[in-house]
Structures are given as structure tokens and as C-alpha cells.
Design a protein around this nucleic acid. Sequence first.
DNA 1: GCACTCCTTTGAACCAGCTCAATTTAGTAC
DNA 2: GTACTAAATTGAGCTGGTTCAAAGGAGTGC
Lengths: 249, 249
Amino acid sequence: MSQKRTTPLEAPSIRKHQCTVDIRLEKLGMVPFFWNLDREILQPINNEFSASHFHAGQPIYYEGEKATMLRVVVYGAVKLIRQTEEGKEIMVDMLKPGEYFGNLNELGDDTYSETATAQSDACIMSIGNREFRSLLNMYPSIAVAVLDVTTKKLNSARQQIHHLTTLSVKKRIAHILKELCGKFGEESKVGMLLQLPLSRKDLADLAGTSTETASRVMSRFQQDGLITSGRQWVAITDINALSEVVSSN
Amino acid sequence: MSQKRTTPLEAPSIRKHQCTVDIRLEKLGMVPFFWNLDREILQPINNEFSASHFHAGQPIYYEGEKATMLRVVVYGAVKLIRQTEEGKEIMVDMLKPGEYFGNLNELGDDTYSETATAQSDACIMSIGNREFRSLLNMYPSIAVAVLDVTTKKLNSARQQIHHLTTLSVKKRIAHILKELCGKFGEESKVGMLLQLPLSRKDLADLAGTSTETASRVMSRFQQDGLITSGRQWVAITDINALSEVVSSN
DNA sequence: GCACTCCTTTGAACCAGCTCAATTTAGTAC
DNA sequence: GTACTAAATTGAGCTGGTTCAAAGGAGTGC
């Protein structure tokens, strides 16, 4: 850590220690599910959760494993991947703090339908499925909040389906960059820096294309001054131009 | 109606009259949302809904319209479509009786994110968004049931994304036929007949391909004896062979 | 500072599926 | 039966994106 870092990305350890017991309650209150709850209700809910840390690249669970937990991202980014036997994979979602993943189905006899991996160093809170479901039944407002989040996810999944079949790779990537910018973008000297490690392969998996094609598109964007990018990082320098790419001819 | 019909599909008017006030309550009880509810609770809920009929091909609402209602299919099939300005479209879902669609978001200021069209003659029950949301808050079990349905939809949307990027058109269509078979298949002399009008274009929109390619694939399937098909109808004759197509090499 | 790793870029051939265009046919109405 | 219409089929050329291969760099550990 004493060497000069050339990545503009924030070093992971800076924030890692912050995920202490003390601030878990605060984090939990920031999760959309628990918006309207009083502190005295939040407290026992908090006790149901347990926290754990993951290093960048470390798997959290695998597709097909027996699914027993529901998880919430507290710090860092988590990617959800589906893969074929031949190893071809696609990224189904990239989660930021406050988002949930895992399983919330009735019984514990389901399996996870995707693999979850820590994209950066991450802190995750987990709760047993059964426990969470009893929360849902106890507090309708939580159920409704979870439903709203899930509905939004469904909508964006359907938009993605639409894009996959109607847009060119170039437009799809431009659109994805815009979304990531809204989610992970942070002001920096190189532009809106996406605060997570993001390789060409990740982008390709998000866009449903090959690494090579993603690289070609990104090279072009960089050439045209829309982005600045290095190894595993991307910064958006001209978001309006990206929007134009999506909606052009 | 006195002429001989050559379509194996059931004539729409046969069942249409069945959607009377008398049996609405029964239908409502069949909707997954309302599984566990007592009859005395169901009764007032039923009163909140209003029913209406649509002819095959008739639009129910358009993408972008102000979204105020949540709807449930009582009889018939409803397709959900998203389209680009140039008219290229994709089918996001095909719904059967008991499934919900429309909007369930917080306030009435959202717009529908897809166009809903009656695929066959259909009977639809509607409820105001606000009213439904208060039901959700009143009966947690409804909220949880809706959440479960939505979660399943999300999962299948994500599977579709996966298929779009990893499977060939042939496999995608084979898979779609299998799903439709489970949902709309009815035993008949020509095999498992899909009990809804289904054109090559519909299939193409479902698979995210062109009408011509869908036609070519279907011709091939018919040639190989996997299906029997005519104008706007499809029957599956060998579902095992279809499964093999999906999982082959 | 040096070596090593693996991420990224670029080239070139190839192909699944698209598009455009023309023809055939199933189903319906009379 | 006959005529009509919209769905379905089939052909042929084109192309965006894939695949395979190989070279070029950024970041890291020692």
C-alpha cells in the first residue's frame, strides 16, 4: 500500500473498517425496506442480521446451491452472474449498498438462481429466509417496500431484454455506462469515476457481448472523448454524448 | 359459426359468457394473491374490482399511458409488448388467467412500461392502484403473495436475458414452446395444443428474432415431427425432442 | 528497478441471423 | 366450390458481431 497507486479507484481498506456494529443500525435504516420504521422496531430487526466481509473477487454463493439466506449489501459492490456449462456468463445485476440479493422464497428447498461475487471488497448483512419472511408478515410496510424494489428490478430486466434485441452493442454499452454512472459515479479529476473495479469482461457480460467487442467499443468511446479508462476502471467524461449515442439514428 | 372450422383452437365465444358476476368471486379466489383468504374477506375485495371484456387483438392499454390500474386476467390470454419508435417490438410476457399486470407503483404519476393487448378474447378485472395498495397494507399475506409472483417473474426475465445471449434462436424457440406448452397446452388429437392464437410473429417477438427466422425454425421442427402447426396455432407433438433441442451440443 | 501477470487491444476470417423481396397457402366468408 | 386476405414460407445477399490468435501495456510484488 506504500507504493504509488495509479488506479484512480479508492483503496478498499479506507472504508472497510467503518462497517462496525455501531453503524450497522444506521446502515440498516438506509435500506429502502426499512424506511418508515421506528428505531425501536429497527433494533430487534437489526439483531436478526449478521454481517460478514468479502474480498474483491470472492464468491458469496454459487448458482444452484441451496438457498437459505437473504442478504443486503452494506458496503462495496456485488455482482450477480448466470453461467452456462461452457463457462459463458452474463451479468444479471450489479448491486450497490442498500440493495438486497439472495433468496426470499417460501421454503429453504430452493436453490440460488445466480452466482453472487464481491466485485470490490464488501460488507454484507444476512438474514435467514424464514426470519425475513416472518418480518414481512409482521410489517406489511416492509413487504410493500420489498415488492416495490422487486417491481423496479423486473422492469429494468425487461428493459434489458428489449435492449438486447433492438439495440446495437455500441448503444447497449453506452446505456450501461450511463446507468452505472448514476449508481456508482463519483466526481473526480478524471470525470465521473465509476467507483468499482470494472473490467472489459464485466462490461461485456453486462451487455451480453464478447470481451473483444466491448473493448473495441470502449476504445472508440475513449478516442471520441466520451470516457477515460484504464485497467479495471472507467470514468465518464461526457455523459450527454453517451445519451446521444443511445438515441442516435 | 355454422361453417366448419379448420383451426383446432377453441372458438372464443364458447366460454365467453361464463364470465358472469356469479363466478367472479370464484375466479378471484383462484388468483394466487388471494389463496389463503376467507370468503368473507374475499367478498369486499371482489367488490373493488370491475370486469371488462376485450376482443382478440384489442389493446388494453398503451406503453407510456398514465398508469392507474392493476389488472388480473380472468379468461383468455394477454400479451405484454415493448416497442421501439421504428415499430420493432418484443414480447415481454404472455399472461394466462390468474396473472396480474398493469401497474402497482406508489402513486398514479407513473406510466405503463409496456403495451397490453388481448391475445385472444379476454375477460379482465381491474382495480385502482391506490385501492390495491391499501389491500396490500391491510393483508400482509396478499403483499407476500404478490411479492412471490413478482420474484418468479423477475427470475424468468433474467433467465430470458441469459438465453438471449447464450442460446441460438433454435434453442430459444424450443424453450419458449416448452414454456407455452406448460402454460397454455391442452390435450388434443393433434398433440398438446397451445390454446391461444399464436402467429410466427408472436413467436419471433417472444424469442427476440425476426418473423422469417422464426418461420424457418418452425418449419424445421414440423419437418422433424416435433410440432404440428398451422396458421396462428401450434401443437407440440414431441416435447421430449424439444427438450433435447434445448440442451443439445 | 525488474519481472511477471493478466487485462486490454487489434487484426482478420467467418457465420448466424437479418433484411428485402417474391411466392405460396391456410383459413374464412359467401 | 370460389374468391379473397393475411399469414407463412422460401430464397439470396449482406453484415454486425464472434472467434481465434497474437501483440501490447498497466499494475503489482519482490
